[in-house]
Amino acid sequence: MLVYVISMLMVGLGAYALMLKENLIKKMIGLGIMSNGIHLFLISVGYKIGGVAPILKQAGLEYLATHSVDPVPQALVMTSIVINISITAVALSLIIQAYRKTGTIEADKLRSLRG
């Protein structure tokens, strides 16, 4: 139960940084914390304390059904981590470009756009 609370706290903290911090790098750190919170949540959905790896060779089918860790969330999290890396790479390169063009990475100074 504690791990769910922690993961939701991470999501909340990340969302706070992503939305309310003005520094773009801090926003990106917030995005990282938020998605890692979701990943932690997803992993703990399929986790069992004292669970074994779901490999059929070592144990019988019935033993695995009760004792193994669910492998699907881990596969999902791997995919999601890769996606997050790409997003972070694109975001940081955009921030570099923004710094070169405007000389600032503070969102409130950058904003010449209307809603």
Partner: peptide, 28 residues
């Protein structure tokens, strides 16, 4: 790579990241 397009892209990225995180959390 103009000032406006980069700012628009950053804004798009931040708001859309919130949206995709919500979708992922819902799927979880």
């Amino acid at each position: 790579k103009e000032k406006e397009s980069i700012e628009a892209s950053i804004k798009y990225l931040i708001i859309n990241s919130i949206s995709t995180s919500m979708i992922l959390l819902g799927i979880a």
